[in-house]
């Protein structure tokens, strides 16, 4: 599904965020990316999402070397990845429904045909009935779940999540991780960056540990 070969990232200011990372994530695999803050978790996810380009090395997603993708192909590449952020990045002038519908509109679904898929996605995250609300009317946890619904509405086979539970209380965090577990059972590959060690320990999934840009362990 995903393979990193000798990937390094050095920022223009000289800071080395990632140093020769070799890593792979199998089809249908779920892995937690951990490490203290500044270890390079976010950078790694950004490289996979093509928000940043690696200084060295190759990243292969589904057999495609994404380092060779021209600029114009990046949007179509991203359409196939579910991205979930710590700061949810919802559009606050639109309803919950419109936020979740956006990726479908982008992919060219006609506004009339996407209702069922949007409601199905909202149902999955337990927010059915909230369609017409504005994001500001929702709690932090609910907003995070809208972000997740937006990521999964296009039925991606790879989900990347950066600290998806960073702002949530333990109970909500557990709910959301449970949700991810269920996607994984449906065959979705997930890479989730988090520093919530308690949660990871209980879920018993693969852990990829980064430390100062180096791969410290993968088990």
């Amino acid at each position: 599904m995903l393979e990193l070969q000798g990937v390094s990232k050095q920022y223009p200011d000289g800071q080395v965020a990632l140093d020769s990372i070799d890593l792979s994530l199998g089809e249908g695999e779920m892995a937690f990316l951990t490490g203290h803050s500044g270890a390079g978790k976010s950078t790694l996810l950004k490289l996979i999402a093509l928000i940043e380009r690696p200084s060295q090395g190759r990243i292969i997603v589904n057999g495609t070397d994404i380092g060779r993708l021209p600029r114009g192909h990046i949007p179509y590449y991203r359409q196939n990845i579910g991205l979930i952020f710590q700061n949810v990045q919802l559009l606050h002038d639109r309803s919950v429904f419109d936020n979740v519908a956006l990726p479908l509109l982008i992919q060219g679904f006609s506004p009339r045909d996407l209702g069922n898929r949007v409601r199905a996605a909202l149902d999955t995250v337990g927010l059915l009935g909230m369609e017409s609300k504005a994001p500001v009317q929702l709690s932090g946890g609910e907003q995070q779940r809208v972000g997740i619904a937006r990521a999964l509405v296009v039925r991606p086979r790879l989900i990347l999540a950066d600290e998806p539970t960073g702002n949530l209380d333990p109970e909500l965090s557990e709910d959301i991780m449970g949700l991810f577990g269920r996607f994984n059972e449906l065959g979705v590959s997930l890479m989730i960056a988090t520093h919530d060690i308690d949660l990871i320990t209980r879920l018993n999934k693969r852990r990829i540990v980064l430390s100062r840009g180096l791969l410290e362990g993968s088990a």
Binding site: A49, I51, G72, P75, Y76, Y77, R78, Q79, N80, I81, L83, F85, Q89, L90, L91, D93, L102, P103, L105, I106, Q107, R150, A151
Partner: peptide, 16 residues
């Protein structure tokens, strides 16, 4: 601007 960034993140091509 923020809205455009979000759209780019979820794969909106320039045309959209």
């Amino acid at each position: 601007r923020e809205e455009i960034v979000v759209m780019k993140l979820i794969g909106a091509p320039d045309g959209f």
